[in-house]
Design a protein around this nucleic acid. Structure first.
Lengths: 228, 228
DNA sequence: GAAGTTAATCGTACACCGTACCATCAATTA
DNA sequence: TAATTGATGGTACGGTGTACGATTAACTTC
């Protein structure tokens, strides 16, 4: 099988030879493609990204994309990963306040995905991109530095990961159109009837999502590392 | 706008008048449609469900489905919700061992979704179906009965929810084809190089997902309700 | 009975999708 | 100059969701 440029990451790239352009310089590039894909996803949602539309916005023909990208799935992969870049806190100053670091990174994680709600719905079906791995590595290092034993690291990381992903996916699923929101409101009427405890705790009405995320995260960290 | 049978839940149904058939009895029914959709999703994954194929398996024409269902999205909604039915533990015996109850229900939740991996990837974009609400109500009631104050209930529920959803979505995303698994293995080679801490803790290699889920859940419950 | 209404089914058609295949052209290399 | 390669894109194919309208069978009302 294999397309024209399958295998590793294709593209020209390193080859320090000289400061010459590859050939002319190509109209398309992976970077431009991914950036435009993210724009389209932001603007029109996950179903609003089609190869033809993407090509249009890039001023090229649809099939030209396929020289740079194996298929549409890859575009999704790249778009998702591009949203998950993370710049570390400027001054780590040697592991001081590990808890603050963890909270910061996880809040940033969530915030980054919520800025692009489609990313949450993309997540379930994709493997781990490099940026996710980088975040996991960072998290591991921080927890490890805080004294968490290697044997416990696994569970700790997964717990935090699960919490963040779940929170993000959930929050994103509530970012619905006004129409859907109206339907949801309507459903809440039924809720009060059949689900009294939910009603009493105002579970679905309280919209301080960020605060709830932070609080729950604190509880989880309490449970994970009561001794540190 | 509106299709022929929009509005509430359509269908004939209650009307206790007499034990007579609605008309003849229709070849199609919401129940049959949903059940078959779940079969197809189980067998061929999320992209394997098309209206035409669904109709074929039901022995009907594709457009016939649209009398019972507004559109394909609704089929997904119904399929997802149908997977999330829950039978309570037979003998609740008045709130004894609330923690055991919570763990049971959340494990069941996760297990149910993992039995139908497509359900996890469906979740992010759908609103709360009745069965999810029922589970949330149950969870609320149990925690409330265990003494959690109404003010804290909100955060507690969301934390548990987040954890379960995240764990399920993550686990499901690793249920990939053999081919994808091979690619993942290959990526692990790079991991060892660039992500030493991940490598050391064997984060991605340890596959005792169920155990990790249980342990992390315990940690979370420890943090949530240390005093109960 | 007849006539009208409604529940339910489905064939056809349309716009759009991802992408295989192949032709094309510009720049580089020989 | 000729050959090679990087990069682009037109056309076409098989598939999708579903709008529209025709069709039939059962029930309701006279």
């Amino acid at each position: 099988m294999a397309g024209k440029r399958s295998g590793a990451q294709s593209k020209r790239s390193q080859r320090t030879r000289s400061a010459e352009q590859p050939r002319h310089d190509p109209a398309l590039s992976l970077e431009r493609i991914v950036a435009t894909a993210v724009e389209l996803l932001d603007a029109h949602g996950i179903d609003g990204l089609t190869m033809r539309r993407l090509a249009d916005h890039l001023g090229s023909g649809a099939m030209s994309l396929y020289w740079h990208v194996d298929n549409k799935e890859k575009v999704f992969d790249l778009a998702l990963d591009s949203v998950l870049e993370y710049r570390e806190l400027p001054e780590t100053a040697q592991s001081r306040d590990w808890r603050g670091e963890v909270v910061h990174m996880l809040q940033d994680w969530r915030a980054g995905m919520l800025r692009h709600p489609w990313s949450a719905s993309l997540l379930p079906r994709r493997a781990l991109g490099p940026n996710i791995l980088r975040r996991l590595e960072l998290l591991s290092r921080t927890l490890s530095g805080a004294g968490v034993a290697d044997a416990d690291l696994n569970v700790a990381i997964w717990s935090l990961w699960n919490y963040v992903i779940g929170a993000t996916v959930t929050r994103a699923s509530f970012d619905l159109s006004d129409e859907d929101m109206a339907a949801a409101q309507q459903r809440l009427a039924l809720v009060s009837e059949h689900y009294p405890t939910i009603e009493r705790s105002r579970l679905l009405l309280d919209d301080d999502w960020d605060g709830a995320f932070r609080k729950g995260l604190d509880f989880l960290l309490d449970g994970l590392a009561p001794k540190y």
